[in-house]
Design a protein around this nucleic acid. Structure first.
Length: 259
DNA sequence: ATGGTAGATACTCTA
């Protein structure tokens, strides 16, 4: 199983890049974030022609998640069980063969101490509860997406500058650690230990050119599944294109067969 | 300490 996560920052703008990338990369499963469109506007037809089915949970303007798969997806769940009908579209959970795939777009949080920051920390606590209540560490499971948190100093281009700021504040890192403690392994870090490997670069101030980035897009797996991962890579080339997303795809391969 | 850019929508908000 080759699985990828990519915050596309508008599926409407990024569709041509996504199509070319699917042809070149040939993943079995793709988790998308920030599709920024409602389900009826999602380009399912274009992706179906490439052999991908889509499960989507989108809204206008903001947020929105989707999972693409070559094989059938069953038991789709959208959001937390306690979510109201007008909840922000940030969590999609499906079964693909034996593997459970959970795609998240964690709230950005805006600024430390803001109302959105409080919402982000509460959302992360709910995610941990979601695992406690409806998942098992014995099942092959991947949690992936835009976590909007860099876990460690080596995931930040300038940890001193970023310490205490949004995406790298201690409470955010702690909330992420608590989710991992449920029983998930950072698959990327099984294969790469060095600093300077990022998945997101701000559009502003030439951040990509200077490699002023953060590693905030993650692929985590339950231990047995993580143990059969062959590779994990960040596809920086997608950030070099004209009109890029501010995020690059993260891809992992597991020695597991999916339909 | 601030602003820089990009996307969607509609004359601003979010990231």
């Amino acid at each position: 199983m080759k699985i990828a996560t990519w915050n596309v920052n508008s599926i409407a703008v990024r569709l041509p890049q996504l199509v070319d990338w699917l042809k070149a990369t040939q993943p079995d499963v793709v988790c998308l974030q920030e599709i920024k469109c409602t389900d009826d506007c999602f380009p399912a037809q274009s992706l179906s022609e490439l052999g991908y089915q889509a499960v989507t949970w989108g809204q206008r303007t903001y947020n929105g998640v989707a999972i693409l798969s070559r094989g059938p997806m069953v038991d789709a769940r959208r959001g937390f069980p306690e979510d109201p009908g007008d909840a922000q579209c940030r969590l999609l959970d499906v079964m693909i063969g034996p593997v459970r795939v959970i795609n998240v777009y964690v709230p950005n949080g805006s600024h430390v101490g803001s109302e959105k920051y409080v919402y982000k920390l509460a959302w992360l606590a709910r995610l941990r509860r979601y695992f406690d209540e409806s998942c098992s560490t014995n099942q092959p499971l991947v949690l992936c997406g835009d976590f909007n948190i860099a876990p460690e100093p080596r995931d930040v281009h300038d940890p001193v500058l970023w310490e205490g700021r949004i995406l790298f504040s201690k409470p955010e890192r702690e909330a992420l650690r608590v989710i991992g403690e449920w029983g998930l392994v950072d698959v990327f870090r099984r294969h790469h230990s060095e600093p300077g490997l990022f998945s997101w670069w701000d559009y502003r101030a030439g951040a990509f050119r200077r490699n002023h980035g953060l590693r905030i897009d993650h692929l985590w797996a339950t231990p047995a599944l993580a143990g059969v991962s062959n590779s994990a890579e960040i596809d920086r080339n997608m950030r070099k294109l004209d009109r890029p997303s501010d995020h690059a795809p993260v891809i992992a391969e597991f020695m597991v067969n999916v339909p």
